[in-house]
Design a protein around this nucleic acid. Structure first.
Length: 787
DNA sequence: ATAGGGTTAG
């Protein structure tokens, strides 16, 4: 008869395996292990594997010390143990074990599980390099068509917004199963490629792959984003037919779909049909209401939620945020912020990111920054939210410096970062940085989605390179109304009215509905291109054919169109037809026309209106005063100046930016702070002589000249654009191109001066001022002397 | 190996 000890001994492994499976806490697991070691039995490979596996089930976060110690206690671990270990380790340890595998355990040949766990680790470590290395090695050992490796890789490339590579990997796998299709569709949705996600879904169905609730949970929000109600209904029928309509995730998807497609009652119906809605159902409905503008219903449902004994979570708070947005109420926003802080369930990434944006939309940049700085952990979305908050509020330098900070922390920008920063570049005219971002997008193979492409078009157009803008536009596979608007306004900005008109017609025939912005762009193009009749016809069609009510800006554009052609009386007449109040932009356009056509009487009328409408804007006072003094009405002139002085109104200082060899230089009027000041001024002297010979005369007489009296003396205060151009002439190779950007409109004299310079030096000079681009070539400007 | 609500872009 065998002793007890012998019986345990023979079944020792089974005995410990049973104990381990039954262990209910980490503590009892440690006890089992120490018992076995104390009694002289080091756990064998299967027991160790089981221990590590149970340990990962019992501990909530990836803990590495215990499993690693167990793993290293074996001199010859097997592949199964290795894979179980890799799956439960933190991503960093997973990668380091994998990379030292060859050295420490050359007998172990990684299989598809080993690769897929390591690739997932690279993805969560945000380490694109190690992922690519793993990709290469897995292909080298013949796993390029493996489902597990393939799905991990697909997921990996999508995480880094490298959608084209992800799709390539997916296409390598000959018979993708449901999970793999789901991985593809999820990745596309996460990268906002909604159309491609829906197309992949259609392909999946057509190829006869089985879809499950996961597929629908992902496809339905994509359909909602595309506002494709018809497709949504087709899917709904399909879902009912295949008996999946009662699945929790699927119902949520339909609530999202119907509320985003303005079918709020259908969404409501589905929500009330659910017997026991979970928190996500509630949140979906609350957000459905608030994002569709049903603010009261949203708040009511929130109250119901609280009364039903649910504890709201961060998503509930985020779902409520559009409420503050639509009211434009800072106090409401602060109330929600306070509520989130008080209930402190998790004032997490999500809430903070949303708050950053809402505060910035309410123009509380300090509050926004405070929330951003207060986050211990920041996601890509948090960074992007803060960067775009700055960009959208015109704080371009802040946006760029935050972008640099992000880069210095080794965080890889994603397409959203790219489009935000491109917007800042466009506003600032920072072509070099814009090009760098473009290069980064290409090098990192970042997804060139509609947002990014449109942002690139806008950046190139606004930074002077309309050719490059057009190239990108032509390469786009998916264009929406914003993309068309960007290219049309780009051509308008450069004075290519006919090209803009051609694109506008092309847009219409491509069945893209023009928006209010489209009309603004095309009217701008007509005014800068001198196309009066075309502009009038388009303005008519805007309300008659497309049912879009013109805004102040559209009226201003029309005034601009008439004014440019010197038809000032028609412009006045047109203003008479504007229903309701006339905005300051309209009068400013009229004033601009008067300035060019030297029409003092109408100018006086316009300037008086402007001083009334915008008492804070100093420019109009100067102008009005100049007009009065020109008509010998000195007391009035003095009175106007007095008012401006009493109000302590300060003129926005003019400055000009120029980039030479990727370095940015900024000049202000009469600037002497630049290291090359002396050569700049002597260059100006040299030029002055040649200019006189060529017939240049300083334009200081004009009554309608928007500068202070003392600024008229150009010898005292040389305008910043002249300094920048002189600097460019010194530092840029002859007979090439100089591009400068000025924050205000270029003045008449500088415009004239630049024409002469372009003729004398044979340089092409491109000037972006506050209203448009001027291309100076051999004494002629593309704006036709009207801007 | 994939999954529902909610945050970031032109």
């Amino acid at each position: 008869m065998r002793s007890l000890e012998e019986r345990i001994g023979s079944d020792r492994r089974a005995f410990y395996l049973r104990l381990i499976s039954a262990a209910s806490s980490l503590f009892s697991l440690y006890q089992i292990l120490s018992h076995s070691i104390v009694s002289g039995h080091h756990p064998d490979l299967p027991t160790t594997t089981k221990l590590i596996h149970r340990h990962s089930e019992l501990s909530h976060s990836p803990a590495s010390a215990f499993p690693l110690a167990l793993f290293y206690s074996h001199s010859r671990p097997d592949l199964f143990l290795l894979n179980v270990l890799l799956r439960c380790l933190d991503p960093f340890s997973t990668l380091s074990i994998f990379s030292s595998l060859h050295q420490h355990h050359p007998h172990l040949r990684p299989d598809s599980f080993t690769f897929s766990f390591s690739i997932s680790a690279a993805a969560s470590l945000a380490s694109p390099v190690s992922g690519r290395v793993l990709h290469a090695r897995s292909v080298a050992v013949g796993y390029s068509a493996d489902r597990f490796v393939g799905s991990a890789l697909t997921d990996f490339y999508f995480k880094f917004s490298m959608t084209s590579v992800a799709e390539e990997v997916f296409n390598q796998i000959s018979c993708p199963d449901t999970v793999l299709w789901n991985t593809l569709i999820t990745g596309l949705v996460r990268n906002c490629s909604f159309l491609r996600a829906v197309m992949a879904f259609e392909r999946m169905v057509a190829l006869g792959s089985h879809c499950d609730s996961t597929t629908l949970a992902v496809v339905l929000p994509a359909t909602a984003e595309l506002r494709d109600l018809i497709l949504g209904k087709v899917i709904h029928c399909f879902v009912v037919k295949s008996g999946m309509e009662a699945q929790s995730h699927v119902i949520t998807g339909f609530i999202t779909l119907y509320s985003k497609c303005d079918e709020i009652h259908d969404a409501e119906f589905l929500f009330h049909e659910i017997e026991q809605p979970d928190l996500i159902h509630w949140n979906a409905m609350i957000s459905g209401y608030s994002s569709a503008g049903y603010i009261r219903s949203s708040v009511c449902l929130f109250k119901d939620l609280m009364l039903s004994g649910w504890c709201p979570n961060s998503s509930t708070v985020v779902a409520l945020i559009p409420v503050t947005d639509s009211y434009g109420h800072v106090s409401l926003c602060r109330a929600i912020h306070g509520f989130a802080l008080k209930t402190s369930f998790d004032l997490n990434l999500l809430v903070c990111t949303a708050l950053t944006t809402v505060y910035s939309r309410l123009n509380c940049m300090d509050a926004a920054r405070q929330v951003f700085d207060g986050m211990q952990e920041k996601s890509m979305a948090s960074w992007n939210a803060m960067i775009s908050a700055y960009a959208q509020n015109g704080l371009t330098e802040a946006a760029i410096s935050l972008f640099r900070e992000m880069q210095s922390l080794n965080l890889k920008p994603n397409p959203m970062t790219a489009s935000s920063i491109l917007s800042a570049c466009a506003q600032l005219g920072a072509l070099t940085l814009g090009k760098q971002v473009h290069r980064m997008i290409t090098e990192e193979k970042l997804e060139l989605n509609v947002f990014v492409s449109t942002a690139l078009i806008d950046m190139y157009a606004k930074c002077g390179n309309i050719i490059e803008a057009q190239k990108i536009f032509d390469c786009m596979t998916e264009k929406n109304e914003v993309s068309w608007n960007a290219i049309i306004s780009g051509f308008g900005l450069h004075g290519y009215g006919c090209e803009a008109l051609r694109l506008f017609r092309e847009m219409l025939s491509a069945q893209i509905s023009p928006t209010a912005t489209t009309f603004l762009s095309i009217l701008h193009a007509c005014s800068h291109g001198g196309l009066v009749e075309e502009g009038q016809a388009i303005f008519q069609s805007m309300s008659h054919t497309y049912g879009i009510r013109p805004r102040h800006e559209h009226y201003a554009c029309m005034v601009d169109i008439f004014g440019r052609a010197g038809r000032l009386n028609e412009a006045l007449e047109f203003i008479g037809t504007v229903p309701g109040d006339v905005g300051p932009g309209v009068w400013a356009a009229l004033l601009g026309a008067c300035r060019i056509h030297k029409e003092a009487n109408i100018a006086k009328l316009a300037a008086e209106k402007l001083v009334q409408l915008e008492p804070e804007n100093p420019g109009y006072y100067v102008l009005l005063s100049n007009i009065y003094s020109a008509s010998q009405n000195f007391p009035e002139a003095a009175a106007v100046r007095d008012v401006a002085k009493r109000r302590k109104l300060i003129k926005l200082p003019g400055c000009t930016l120029i980039e030479v060899k990727d370095v940015l230089h900024v000049f202000t009027a009469g600037d002497r702070s630049h290291p090359q000041t002396s050569s700049i001024y002597s260059m100006l002297e040299t030029l002055a002589g040649k200019m006189l010979d060529a017939g240049y005369q300083a334009e200081t007489e004009s009554v309608l000249y928007d500068v202070e009296e003392e600024e008229k003396e150009h010898m005292v205060k040389i305008h910043s654009e002249k300094l920048a151009i002189a600097f460019g002439l010194i530092n840029i190779k002859p007979e090439s191109e100089i591009t400068i950007i000025k924050n205000l409109r270029i003045c008449l004299d500088c415009h004239n001066w630049t024409k002469f310079i372009s003729r004398i030096t044979k340089m092409v000079i491109v000037v972006r001022d506050a209203s448009r681009f001027h291309h100076f070539t051999n004494g002629v400007c593309s704006c036709g002397d009207y801007w």
